[in-house]
């Protein structure tokens, strides 16, 4: 899922200056699961903005709404009336949701209430970790299901760097070295040979380096 975290209230107050009526719009998908932008967080952020704006002497009237998916026009329609009656929207969706809103409601200021962080998983209660960089050409089959592009801080494809330790990455003590995990996993499944040949330079044109990406499924456009 997409993992995001909330911007701080002072940051939001800086962003929201000058709007008397604000819609705080949550999203019921990824950001609800990662406890950043669902119904519950909409309520918390809305209350915080009401209080902070009152303390500043410029009260903002805040409306709350959460829709199923902000990145889908079908669901965005459900917010049309609420968007219309407010002077701005604070989206608690991911970056895709914010932009979908801004594109659809061209005359309405739309602001991001979250910092969208990564594609990842819930590791344990309250801890999310990044697993995928969306490079557009998955290599997980060669690396035992551990992504060296995302999880190695240097995207190394031919083995660990000299700073690798069994219990940590060179960069941070609380991060495992992807190559230690790749090695152990491939050893466990009897596929160590997969990393013995030299991996050639990766084609990054399918990744963000090739520019913003579009997928067109002709079979679904009939």
């Amino acid at each position: 899922m997409i993992v995001a975290q909330r911007k701080t209230v002072p940051e939001l107050m800086e962003i929201l200056q000058g709007h008397p009526r604000l819609l705080v719009l949550g999203c019921g998908t990824c950001v609800t699961v990662c406890l950043a932008g669902g119904e519950r967080e909409v309520s918390i952020i809305a209350s915080a903005i009401r209080m902070a704006s009152r303390l500043r002497g410029q009260p903002i009237q805040v409306e709350e709404l959460t829709i199923e998916r902000q990145c889908d026009n079908v669901f965005l329609e459900q917010a049309a009336e609420a968007i219309e009656r407010n002077s701005a929207v604070l989206s608690l969706g991911c970056g895709a949701g914010v932009q979908a809103l801004a594109e659809r409601y061209a005359q309405k200021p739309v602001y991001a209430g979250l910092d969208t962080a990564f594609l990842g998983i819930l590791e344990e209660r309250g801890i999310w970790t990044e697993k995928c960089s969306s490079c557009g050409a998955c290599v997980l089959h060669d690396f035992g299901g551990v992504c060296p592009i995302t999880r190695c801080a240097k995207h190394l494809l031919n083995g660990p760097c000299g700073g690798s330790r069994p219990d940590r990455c060179e960069v941070r003590p609380d991060r495992e070295c992807a190559w230690q995990l790749i090695y152990q996993r491939l050893k466990d499944i009897g596929q160590l040979d997969r990393i013995k040949k030299i991996a050639p330079p990766k084609d990054w044109s399918t990744s963000l380096d090739g520019g913003c990406r579009t997928i067109i499924r002709e079979d679904h456009r009939i």
């Binding site: 995207h155 190394l156 494809l157 031919n158 960069v171 050639p200 990054w204």
Partner: peptide
């Protein structure tokens, strides 16, 4: 090379288009 986090410029972006073996 050392990751930029270990240098005097930890805020910089890195490249790592290819690795040392490549």
């Amino acid at each position: 090379g050392y990751h930029q986090a270990l240098t005097g410029c930890p805020e910089s972006a890195h490249v790592y288009d290819i690795d040392s073996v490549q």
